[in-house]
Design a protein around this nucleic acid. Structure first.
Lengths: 200, 200
DNA sequence: CCGGTTTTGTCATCCGAATGACAAGGCTCG
DNA sequence: CGAGCCTTGTCATTCGGATGACAAAACCGG
């Protein structure tokens, strides 16, 4: 049973879910094994130790993220195109809430000595987007700052969400929250790069 | 020795530092004891178990935060006063980086079963600020959204910071990063609430 | 001032549980 | 068979928590 029909995939799926929800320290290999419906040792057999598991999860998440962003970047032709790019990224984070959650946890735990994730992955990604943006935006705009603002907001709203009046939390999985978020980020970016307010 | 001359304070200081840096799961009572220069049991004697330690840390952090915000709210008389309020909060987060870091970890459901922190602490705080803001801001402005945006950005830049071109990280402890952040948030808030762009 | 008692602060130590990791063996299907 | 897949079993380590012992200080009746 379970054969090899994507055992590794199932393991990574479970690990992604758990790392995103509980962080690296809050997740044990046994939890991951149980969530994947496999034995603890089987997980090690397919992926390796806990650290390998984590790296594999982060790399897979990053690959998806890079795919979305590089596709979107390729279609940026003017400043307005940046709003579409932002839209794509928001969509991606709403559809895959694990990604912002994984990164959020990561930003806060320098403990994990997997520094190459930042250096080799997020920095190039950031530069790719920044380069595309600089071409279509007036000089003097602090492009990197705008990007970081969008990143922090999107990751924040996406993983932490908003504490509603009745004490419940809403993230970007909530369609109404998503719409509100999108409209506001569009306006935020538009004014930051000197575009007219998008009435949506 | 060390008597009771603020042993509890020293413990809470160490715990705050560690919880902020490593999160709840990443911190052990033994680390805290060592960082405070005390025995594990002594920590338990003064504060209690790990959970009590965490709650005490969060409550102390929240008290400071509320103090700053309620002082600032009391001086808001017009829309421009909100920019001052934001400034105060940014200053606070820059001076006490543990606070945004603690909350950041918390949003990602660090020690999830201490829900009263959100319900009894952050929600009232949020409502206090929102109420003050609504009085001086045009109707139709999504005040709570603006607040959440500022919170996420400030906590994000404050605890996670920004990944610089050379791979180093800069948070709000870096004066230049702080200035850049402040200017941009001021503008962000100003445009969101229909104020002229503050040239600062 | 004083002897004895209580309270307070600290420590070394132990316990049950959980964790990450690994060795060795057993499936099962081509 | 035998290689890929999975399990059982075990190990050292670490965790949070609790206990009992001890010293110093505070307290108190005389």
């Amino acid at each position: 049973m379970t054969s090899s029909d994507g055992a590794r995939e199932r393991i990574l799926d479970a690990a992604t879910r758990l790392f995103a929800a509980l962080g690296y320290d809050g997740t044990s290999t046994r939890m991951i094994a149980e969530a994947a419906g496999l034995n603890v040792a089987t997980v090690a057999y397919h992926v390796g130790g806990k650290r390998d598991l984590y790296v594999a999860v982060m790399e897979r998440a990053h690959t998806a993220e890079r795919q979305v962003l590089s596709d979107a970047v390729a279609q940026v032709e003017d400043a307005g195109g940046l709003l579409t790019l932002v839209d794509r990224y928001i969509d991606f984070c709403a559809e895959h809430p694990e990604v912002p959650a994984l990164w959020m946890h990561r930003w806060l735990s320098d403990a994990a000595d997997v520094a190459h994730l930042e250096e080799h992955y997020v920095r190039p990604l950031l530069e790719m987007v920044a380069a595309a943006a600089r071409k279509v935006v007036p000089d003097g705009v602090d492009v990197e700052y705008v990007i970081w603002t969008v990143v922090w907001c999107t990751h924040g709203f996406g993983s932490g969400g908003v504490l509603d009046a009745d004490g419940t939390r809403h993230g970007l999985d909530d369609p109404r929250e998503l719409a509100r978020f999108r409209a506001n980020v569009r306006r935020l970016v538009a004014t930051a790069i000197g575009l007219p307010d998008p009435a949506a």
